[in-house]
Amino acid sequence: MIKIDHLTHIYHKESTNQEVKALDDVSLTIQDGEHIAVLGHNGCGKSTLAKHLNALLLPTEGTVEVDAVDTANEADLWTIRQSVGMVFQNPDNQLIATTVEEDVAFGPENIGMEPLLIRQRVDEALELVGMTAFKDKEPHLLSGGQKQRVAIAGIIAMRPKYIVFDEPTAMLDPQGRREVMETMQRLNKEEGLTVVNITHFMEEAVLADRVVVMEQGKVILVDTPRVVFSQVDLLKRMQLDVPPITELAALLHKEKNYIAADIMTIEEMVNALCH
């Protein structure tokens, strides 16, 4: 369980010499095994929030606890980072080694694992993301989606409990996006990992158990995707994407009230229309 308690983060912006409140009194509890999506605009604080979960940033006020360990506790830094893995936006800027398997081994090597165990973990992790066939390839020869899967494998090899995805699909094409989302879903549903996905894409947020909507450093809405997306007007005012099907549902609901306003998939809509 990750417990974020009244977290405020203030940083000093050098170019304008101003103090900026990136996070403003955020409280949130992430349960084990949960899949959480965090939605919001650039600059709303969602990436800053993500970086607090594995002590890349520390709170100005408030606390973040990972399995009851305070992230501000320097002695536990490496335990926390091993337990909370992180996948970043730019697939190129997080692969370190010159071959896929060496890259996946990077994390385990850093925590001083035995070579034989590293081998085993690397093979398992590559299998899990479906990249075994590429283990000797150089990273720059892979597609964006494949690079992200290697990055995910690099995290998995450390056997974390939580994985934080910081806009992992923002720079990918539809094919790459599908690959990453399928992998994310599998890790959550089959391997029982807790997933926090920071994203702009509502198609991704729909897959989560809970959606957190952020604006100007504050959490303004936390609920199931169905409840969040049925608030079409609020989301539109925030200029966030609404799934087209939900937008249609809202429009139809105004005319025919037997059509629910919180429809999220094509299948549900077909059923509602052809009942």
């Binding site: 594995n54 890349l56 490496w78 980072r81 091993q82 893995g85 992180m86 970043f88 730019n90 190129d92 800027n93 997080q94 370190i96 398997e101 060496e102 081994a105 990077f106 994390g107 385990p108 090597e109 850093n110 925590i111 001083g112 694992m113 035995e114 070579p115 590293i118 081998r119 690397v122 690099g154 995290i155 450390m158």
Partner: peptide
């Protein structure tokens, strides 16, 4: 420079802290 910056953060997030106590996949 931007790449270097992001790479450094990614390495830290993967528990990199220099050569001390580091093992290797292929010894």
């Amino acid at each position: 420079f931007q790449r270097a910056d992001e790479l450094a953060i990614a390495m830290e997030a993967r528990c990199y802290h220099g050569g001390a106590n580091r093992t290797r996949l292929k010894a």
